[in-house]
Design a protein around this nucleic acid. Structure first.
Lengths: 142, 142
DNA sequence: GCTTGACCTTCCAGTCACGGGAGGGTCTAT
DNA sequence: ATAGACCCTCCCGTGACTGGAAGGTCAAGC
């Protein structure tokens, strides 16, 4: 199977597949004309990668998951652990974003948003009165 | 003020400040010895950038915000609009992460996580039975 | 005056996960 | 024979920095 067909079957762009070969995630054979020749096992790996990446696993985690995928003696606990770590990571990111959103929403609420120049958002960014001097204050204490 | 002091005062790494100069976000003067010389206005810009970046604004948005910051005739509505767009972006990211989390949590729940190899997580990633063939099915229809 | 060490400079390379495009070979159908 | 779709490799660019090498400058202590 040529790379175009593999791309179609896996849902991965051609460029991405070549990149995955470059970093050793897949090792297709070569036809006599130099074209990559993907077997069914290669295609399985590509589909696996497509799904794992779409679930947010990093390339390195995908590498781990792939080796578990192909390890007939794997412990499902190992897979579960990686997945749980990923969930924790997602939780941290969500919390971070929510806290960002809170700050920005407060600022938006405080800003009248008309054609006058005075703006609590700009005031905050320029470190006007309030909490944002804490950073330096804390550094100065240390 | 040398770059080290500017770094301390602004909370930005030295490397980052040099990078910001390279992309034109700040234009410190130079002393006779070639060292950068930051004035109070430069420092204000750096602090502004530190705060805006920490709130998740991209460099390009920071550029916009900076020019509004220094525009005495700005309309606060413009600032508010940029901030609202940022909030929308955050909302989209949060939703994406929550949907990822739901999928992963379902998988973790289904996996017994012991030393046996059979694992619903791996099954899902390898496109075993269920919903993940939708992609190809939909493509095939087209 | 000399050395040490902290500071500063520029330039180059790497990060992550690809995407774009140049320049060229191969295959298939007409 | 030629058109057009495919394939190849190689190199550069992304965002927002970070690390490191190689070297100049400055202040303090001996």
């Amino acid at each position: 199977m040529n790379i175009g067909a593999a791309s179609w079957q896996s849902g991965l762009p051609v460029k991405t597949i070549r990149y995955y070969e470059e970093i050793g995630l897949v090792r297709p054979a070569r036809s006599e004309n130099g074209y990559r020749d993907f077997l069914e096992t290669d295609l399985q790996r590509l589909k696996f990668l497509q799904r794992a990446r779409s679930l947010g696993f990093s390339i390195d985690k995908c590498r781990e998951l792939l080796s578990l995928y192909e390890d007939r003696n794997r412990a499902s606990a190992d897979v579960k652990e990686i997945t749980r770590e990923k969930i924790d990571e997602i939780d941290r990111k969500i919390e971070e974003l929510q806290s960002l959103k809170r700050v920005l929403s407060d600022l938006v609420r405080a800003c009248h948003g008309d054609d006058r120049p005075d703006c609590p958002i700009i005031d905050d960014l320029s470190g006007a009165p309030g909490a944002q001097d804490c950073d330096r204050a804390e550094r100065d204490k240390a």
